[in-house]
Design a protein around this nucleic acid. Structure first.
Lengths: 195, 195
DNA sequence: GGTGCTAAGATACGCCTCGTATGTAAACGG
DNA sequence: CCGTTTACATACGAGGCGTATCTTAGCACC
């Protein structure tokens, strides 16, 4: 029972630390999170942390990678449920807005992440999110649905608009009402790309 | 000569500290900037800082207020030089993109600011920037140029798209080429709001 | 099965930074 | 001219990060 495989033990401690970090980073923010407290919360010390992740930034990076994977998956699902590619693009953006409403994603992915690790477009997975959108845009340009704009530029702008909408909504008194306004305006705006 | 008025002396030290902070924050980032070094660089100590700004965040807030004022002014100028309100709206957004290319604005206003002080829409001046855009949008809706969308939502989305475009451009290998792509796509996207 | 080796994690240390509490000297008001 | 307030400096304590060292437990190989 106590005789677990080594690799498995390591994976467990890494998972424990990442879980604790998600909790601490999203509630207190990155810089206010003490690594001493964080590790102690799961029965470890900073030794384990520095051994596994190198430094505090390394832990944040690991957390971001994990959340990024989850976001990508949710966007994929949203797009798959749409009737056609154009709807898929819109649904994906709406999903993005909704995710950005969650405090954890907002704090870690949208606020602390970029500030600590630099521009988000450098992150491999964030790029993956974007590449999804971009490839759909390209597809829609090819089949004549969209104007022949630069696909990457269009994807960036759409994501940017969605992201800012999300930050706005999250800070609003009545998120529901604001969400509706934002989505409505977003759908209108997006038609600017249609041929 | 040395007999200056007190208020003037205070204004000078505040200006010195803000100038040093703009330099330090934009080059090293907020958290990596030591208040000891920063104050020593202009011949003061942390005493002056904590007396004038309360704490490190207070200094950042002062820096942000100053930069915000400059940004607002530049957007105002860009919009005034346009032939008509619709062009004014576009020019203002382009000016925003161009400003966001500057490392100082990017680092302080777009990365560290939101992370340290919270959502930008809480900042009084950032709201002022937005209010400008919003009032123009409202005007254009009233005169029938734009679709009857929610003015604030539209303003947010436009600013968000512009902001993300700027971050993209800044990280690009060939900023000039990318700037052109982004502006082109932005102008197309914005037409989605036209009636 | 025993043994040398490697790696995971704990413990201990020093450095830096922030915020505050206290001190001091100069400017203001009467 | 003098008490008071204000602006800033100095001194102090508390964390927090990163690293260097130490211990223990698993693994490979004989």
């Amino acid at each position: 029972m106590a005789a677990k495989r080594r690799a498995q033990m390591v994976e467990e401690t890494r998972a424990k630390l990442i879980r604790a970090a998600r909790e601490a980073f999203s509630s207190k923010g990155y810089s206010a999170s003490s690594m001493d407290d964080l590790t102690a919360a799961v029965g470890l010390t900073r030794g384990a942390l520095y051994h596994n992740f190198g430094d505090k930034k390394g832990l944040l990076q690991a957390v971001i990678d994990q959340i990024d994977g989850e976001m990508l998956e949710r966007m994929r699902i949203a797009q798959e449920h749409a009737a056609n590619p154009w709807e898929g693009l819109l649904q994906e953006s709406v999903a993005y807005i909704e995710m950005a409403l969650e405090p954890e994603i907002q704090r870690i992915m949208l606020l602390d992440g970029p500030a600590v690790l630099g521009d988000p477009s450098q992150w491999p997975n964030q790029t993956a999110c974007l590449r999804r959108t971009e490839s759909i845009v390209r597809e829609l340009i090819d089949d004549g649905t969209l104007k022949p704009v630069d696909a990457e530029a269009a994807a960036r702008l759409l994501n940017g608009a969605a992201l800012n909408a999300a930050l706005w909504i999250a800070a609003a008194d009545d998120p529901r009402a604001v969400l509706k306004k934002a989505v409505d305006a977003f759908l209108e705006l997006a038609t600017g790309l249609r041929r």
